[in-house]
C-alpha cells in the first residue's frame, strides 16, 4: 500500500503542469519513502526504543531506521523550501505557475 502512495506521487509529478502540484507530488513521494523505511524496521508486538525498568531489550523495534528517517524528514523540508522559493521567483518573472507557458526556457 505504501507503493500505491508512491505511485500517486509519481503520477502527480509526471502528469500535472502546475508547479505547486508538482511540489505536492514530491512531498507525497517523500512521505511514502519515509513510511516504507519505518515499515521495514517494524517488529510485530514491538515496543518503542526507550529503555525503561521493566522492559526486556529483545522486544524493541529497530531504532536505526528511525534515526535515519528523522534526518531525512528535516532534509526534505530544506528541499521543499528551496523548491518553493524557485517557484515564487518563477511566478514573479513570468506571472504564471504553468510550466508550458514559460517559453523563454526553451532553447
Amino acid at each position: 500500500m505504501c507503493f500505491v502512495l508512491f505511485s500517486i506521487g509519481l503520477y502527480c509529478i509526471l502528469r500535472k503542469r502546475n508547479i505547486i502540484k508538482i511540489i505536492i507530488g514530491i512531498v507525497i513521494v517523500e512521505y511514502a519513502l519515509n513510511l516504507f523505511l519505518i515499515l521495514i524496521g517494524y517488529r510485530i508486538h514491538g515496543r518503542a526504543p526507550i529503555v525503561a525498568q521493566d522492559q526486556e531489550i529483545l522486544n524493541m523495534v529497530d531504532p536505526l531506521p528511525q534515526a535515519m528517517v528523522s534526518t531525512s524528514i528535516v532534509i526534505g523540508l530544506a528541499i521543499i523550501v528551496v523548491l518553493i522559493s524557485l517557484a515564487i521567483r518563477i511566478y514573479e518573472k513570468y506571472g504564471t505557475f504553468d510550466i508550458t507557458k514559460i517559453r523563454r526556457l526553451k532553447g
Binding site: I38, A48, P49, S70, G76
Partner: peptide, 16 residues
C-alpha cells in the same frame, strides 16, 4: 509513526 512505535518521528513529522 506513532502506531509503528516511533514517537520521535511523530513529533518531528508534526512540526515539519
Amino acid at each position: 509513526f506513532l502506531i509503528l512505535k516511533a514517537p520521535n518521528l511523530a513529533i518531528t513529522q508534526l512540526v515539519v
